[in-house]
Simulated assay, not measured.
Amino acid sequence: MTDKIEILNERLFPVDRETLFEAFADPAQLASWWGPEGFSNRIAAFDLRPGGTWLITMTVDNGTDFHNRWTFEEVVEGQMVRMTHHEPVHIFTLEMRFADEDHGARLSWRMLFDRTEENEQLEKFLHAANEQNFDRLERLLEQGDRH
């Protein structure tokens, strides 16, 4: 047993791996799908390289802003991004892996949290929230023209 809480979501998308990766690597596309249902996003910084910073403000339907700060730890173009989420409140690591398969590209989304009582409460709804994130990404990819 690990001392970490792991949340894993995976989905096969009907696009090639490069298109799937670009939906994350392009801030304009990313802003349109990041987060669960009901959120809109403003990206103030997006420096996709090891040590780079990502600043995103997620706004929920009621107007509440959530300012998020990330650091990119490892980036393998078209294949993998590992980053640390610093704010607000919850510190965790997210690793996204992009892989070609017969009928599209698979995105594997692995979150690792320290095992705390608060994070154990988060675990109960994060898997479902991540699926909403994937739903939003799938809708973007279905639109075809993303620029």
Rank of each mutant, 00 (worst) to 15 (best):
T93V: 15
N130L: 09
E73N: 08
V81L: 14
L140C: 04
H127C: 09
E73I: 12
G144N: 02
R97A: 05
A129Y: 11
E101P: 03
L94C: 00
V81T: 11
E118K: 15
E87V: 04
D100W: 08
L112G: 03
F125T: 08
Q143H: 13
L140Y: 02
G63M: 04
E120Y: 05
E117L: 14
F92N: 11
A105L: 08
M96A: 10
E77K: 12
N133T: 09
H67R: 13
M80I: 00
E138T: 10
F66D: 07
M80K: 12
H86D: 06
H86N: 02
E138C: 03
R110G: 01
E131L: 09
H86A: 03
Q143G: 07
E101D: 12
M96P: 03
A105E: 07
T84V: 15
G63Q: 08
E138H: 10
G144M: 06
G78L: 03
V76A: 11
N133G: 07
P88S: 04
M83R: 05
R110T: 15
M111R: 05
H90E: 10
G78C: 05
L141K: 02
G144D: 03
E118V: 14
H85D: 00
R106Y: 01
E131D: 13
R106M: 08
R110V: 15
W70M: 13
M111P: 03
N119L: 07
T64Q: 14
G104K: 04
F113C: 03
N130E: 10
L141A: 06
L112W: 14
E123L: 11
F66N: 10
T93K: 05
T84P: 02
N62G: 01
Q132D: 03
V76L: 09
D114H: 07
E74K: 14
H103P: 00
V75E: 02
K124L: 15
L122G: 05
R115T: 15
H103K: 12
T71S: 01
